[in-house]
Design a protein around this nucleic acid. Structure first.
Lengths: 216, 216
DNA sequence: TAGATTGTTAATCGATTAACAATC
DNA sequence: TAGATTGTTAATCGATTAACAATC
């Protein structure tokens, strides 16, 4: 009913609020004002209050925000109160790194299987997650619930595999391949383009150098 | 002299233009109009022209843009025409993945060394990049030019190592640790927070589910 | 109650899109 | 020359910040 349509900018900031609140809990802080959080996170207090109020009034006038309560509310908003089964296509180093990262499980992301085409990798286990042959992808998805498919394969294979996933009904893809996947609108794609990230850093290095030269 | 101050939004899009232009070159396209590129990239033609004109007039009225020329101009803007020496702190799976990704070298990012504290990893080689003990970090940086330091270590170690890097004069950090580094203003930090990316995907999954429920 | 701080409206700022004159 | 398409200005849209009344 209340369709306010949350902007991407707000969503981009939510996980960061969540992370800071988690740290506050660890250090035993029970309540926090938007201005105190503002100085820690280096964003304006106004923005914090605006962002949070997109989802409801989590604070209390004169008091601020209860850290634990706000933390759990943001968890709900982000869907971290639900389990998500995640498969990983591509059991190379990057696939390994993600499968090994146990903190994901804590947030409800359960890594259930890896897939690869390399016979040497098939059958091996990472933690207790088995590496299956890519040829069994469809059969696996038919028998197991898959909420998120992670693509850690070269870009040459990515588009084809993505289509196979979509044909099996997978609705969310975490894409590490260096390419855009052109998929139907109802399929959610979250891209992690490492090379683009590195180029942005390179851009900033370059523009600092240029402005230093100009000062001479 | 001409300090227009390019917005972050523009910089975020530049590597994507670069990628598409690279693909166009590969498929033999010699020239392209902003509207043709617009339909491929799913951004407005107006935005493409605005973005590019921040850096100069690369096109020609009535013709469009020469693909190879524009590609090489964007490369220059991104600093890809210069070599950047990159070290990697943390020779785990993620560090391995990055060290193994040869496409970075093509763009001028030369991986020169890995560092780790785990004795089992020290001395090993990835391609021909050696894994050195973290204790030698300072000595290495003194003797070798390091343009970018990559942090692929747990967040507990990240802040301390980042400070060591800054003390040695490193001016750019590519940070994969799940934490913010609070460093001096003149140190450039590019964050890759994988868990935040996964949470954004989870948010979108959740909000699709919610809107489906509301429709009932 | 007085002080603190939120929730929310209004003002500002910046980014995107539209339009069109310039020009190849 | 006529047609196409850029470069650029102006209009619109959206996001951020400021301000303050509501209220704990």
């Amino acid at each position: 009913m209340e369709e306010k349509e949350i902007s991407k900018a707000v969503i981009r900031r939510l996980p960061r609020y969540y992370r800071y609140l988690g740290e506050l809990i660890e250090s035993g802080v029970e309540r926090i004002s938007s201005s105190e959080l503002s100085s820690r996170m280096k964003v304006t207090a106004s923005q914090i209050r605006q962002d949070l109020n997109n989802f409801g009034g989590f604070g209390q006038q004169g008091y601020g925000y209860n850290v634990k309560f706000l933390y759990s509310e943001i968890a709900k908003i982000l869907g971290l109160d639900k389990k998500h089964n995640v498969i990983i296509i591509g059991a190379g180093n990057l696939g390994h790194a993600i499968a090994n990262y146990v903190a994901f499980e804590k947030r409800g992301f359960i890594m259930t299987a890896l897939f690869d085409i390399n016979p040497e990798r098939i059958g091996k286990k990472i933690r207790d997650i088995e590496v299956l042959p890519l040829s069994e992808l469809e059969a696996y998805i038919k028998e197991n619930e898959v909420d998120i498919a992670t693509l850690t394969i070269p870009k040459t294979a990515a588009k084809e595999v993505a289509e196979r996933l979509v044909n099996c009904g997978v609705k969310a893809i975490w894409n590490f391949a260096h390419t855009d996947l052109n998929l139907p609108e109802d399929v959610l794609v979250e891209n992690v383009h490492l090379s683009e990230s590195l180029m942005r850093l390179s851009y900033n290095i370059t523009s600092v150098e240029k402005s230093r030269e100009e000062q001479k």
